[in-house]
């Protein structure tokens, strides 16, 4: 069976064992997802490559921590990204590492630029929400981001972050409550924040 037929979880396990094709396949399947994740957390397209690279370097060096019996691959991927971003010093070190390794190749070509601008515009309607989320305490913010922006269930977010399901739900409920109070746009009424995410 080629890696193209493997599940995400199988790919991560193979990648942890050093299979380059599995890593490449996993990267190809999910690089868009990580880029969108990074776009939501950057202010300018030029900042995105460093963060995307930082997340993937973190992922590659963490694949041996993935346990398929404890959860799915995508929540793990996004949880790894969220944890990296939540830790300023870790993010800083990873971005430095990425800059050093990518060098001039991290500069954006026209296609990159257009795609990232489009992604940032697509999430632009949520600029107020993004700002409000950024002001939440870290524990609540990370859970809210994973559930509201990345579409994970609270249980998946809990698994991705290594916290109990009840702790994730509590943080999510508190984060949602604060966001609802701070937002006046109809965005929240149609977002996953409202729809059965708790």
């Amino acid at each position: 069976m080629t890696v193209g037929h493997k599940t995400d979880e199988e790919l991560l396990v193979l990648a942890a064992d050093g299979d380059p094709q599995a890593l490449e396949e996993f990267y190809r399947r999910h690089v868009d997802k990580v880029e969108r994740f990074a776009s939501r957390r950057c202010h300018r397209p030029q900042e995105v490559p460093d963060l995307v690279a930082a997340v993937w370097l973190e992922v590659v060096e963490s694949t041996n921590r993935f346990d398929p019996t404890r959860g799915r691959a995508v929540p793990w991927l996004l949880g790894t990204a969220a944890n990296l971003i939540a830790s300023r010093s870790r993010r800083r070190m990873r971005e430095l590492q990425a800059r050093s390794r990518l060098g001039g190749r991290r500069s954006l070509d026209e296609d990159d630029y257009a795609r990232l601008e489009e992604q940032m515009a697509a999430v632009g309607l949520a600029a107020e929400l993004k700002d409000a989320i950024s002001k939440l305490p870290t524990g609540e913010r990370v859970v809210v981001e994973l559930v509201a922006l990345e579409g994970l269930t609270p249980g998946q977010a809990a698994g991705a972050l290594g916290i109990s399901s009840s702790a994730a739900r509590m943080r999510l409920a508190r984060g949602r409550m604060k966001l609802r109070r701070s937002m006046s746009t109809p965005f929240l009424s149609t977002s996953p924040l409202k729809e059965g995410s708790v």
């Binding site: 370097l57 041996n64 500069s107």
Partner: peptide, 26 residues
């Protein structure tokens, strides 16, 4: 095929994977 910085990143990730100490996570 990926193009841009994403294409440039892939070989770096594979090299990083290659340099990882061998473990048997299972």
């Amino acid at each position: 095929e990926l193009g841009g910085y994403r294409g440039a990143l892939l070989p770096i990730l594979l090299e990083t994977q290659h340099r990882q100490p061998g473990v048997a996570p299972h």
